[in-house]
Structure formats: structure tokens, C-alpha cells
């Protein structure tokens, strides 16, 4: 795939940050910027789900910021996934993006199926399996 994933974020149902991973190897994107982008994406997600009657979990391109593109996905349980990618000349296909989000969703489902996971605790995700899955998503996308 012809684009780099810069950042992957998981945001809880009450808009609490669950997981933010900076995948870039570029010093131009500090962690703080990832937090900032994830934060601003929440507004766009809310706007998207209130305006579109379309019931797909994948929300498409949320916005483009300088040289970055931000994509969103919301589960039925109101958990939001955000992927930030570098903008390239070639258009990013929705199909590819959906596949990435599906991988994140699978990892998340596996996480909450753990009986020791407390759904109401709103803790930040700290699971080696989830880390590995996210790393795979980030690595699989860069050509």
C-alpha cells in the first residue's frame, strides 16, 4: 500500500482516550501532535454520525491537515478508531482503509473478550496482544 500510517488512536465511548500510538519514524510528528489530531477528530466523528443517515461503521476521510489525512471508524458500541496517514499523490482507496480498520476492530474485540478486562474502568489499553496487532496494522500499510 502506498501510504504510511502516522498514528492510530482508539477513543472510548465517552470520548476518553483508550490508546494512542505514534507509528511514524519521523521526528516531525511528536506524540503531542498525535494527541492533538485524535482530539480534533472527535468533533468530526460526531458531526459525521449526526448528519449522515448512512449506517456504515466506516466513516471515511474526516479531514486533511497539512500533509496528513485523518480517517475515522465508529463501532456499534460508540468506540472510535482513528487512523492518520501521510498524504500521497495516489488516492487512498476506501477498501484498503476499511481492511485496516477491520483489523483494529478484530484486535479490539479480542481485547474486550478477555474476562479480566473491565469495560467501565476507562483505563488506557495496556495489552501486549493489542500492541502487536496495532504494530502489524501500521507495518502492513507501508510499502
Amino acid at each position: 500500500m502506498p501510504f504510511d500510517v502516522i498514528c492510530i488512536a482508539v477513543i472510548g465511548k465517552t470520548n476518553n482516550p483508550l490508546y494512542i500510538k505514534n507509528c511514524s519514524r519521523n521526528a516531525a510528528y511528536p506524540d503531542l501532535k498525535c494527541h492533538y489530531i485524535a482530539h480534533t477528530a472527535i468533533d468530526l466523528v460526531e458531526e459525521k454520525i449526526s448528519t449522515t443517515k448512512q449506517a456504515d461503521q466506516y466513516l471515511g476521510l474526516l479531514y486533511a491537515l497539512e500533509e496528513l489525512a485523518v480517517f475515522g471508524y465508529i463501532t456499534n458500541t460508540r468506540v472510535k478508531f482513528i487512523i492518520v496517514t501521510s498524504l500521497t499523490d495516489a488516492a487512498i482507496k476506501d477498501q484498503e482503509m476499511k481492511a485496516l480498520f477491520r483489523k483494529i476492530h478484530n484486535a479490539y474485540v479480542a481485547l474486550v473478550s478477555n474476562p479480566f478486562w473491565d469495560p467501565d474502568a476507562q483505563r488506557v489499553i495496556s495489552s501486549p496482544n493489542f500492541d502487536r496487532a496495532i504494530a502489524q496494522v501500521a507495518a502492513g500499510s507501508s510499502s
Binding site: I49, A55, D56, Q57, I74, T75, N76, T77, H105, N106, Y108, V109, V112, S113, P115, W117, P119
Partner: peptide, 13 residues
Amino acid sequence: MAMVERITKDRPR
């Protein structure tokens, strides 16, 4: 809580 996460995975919102 855990089950519904799994069952609604491929469902429209």
C-alpha cells in the same frame, strides 16, 4: 458487554 462487541462487529450502526 463483551458478547455484544463481538456480535455487532459486522453490523450496520
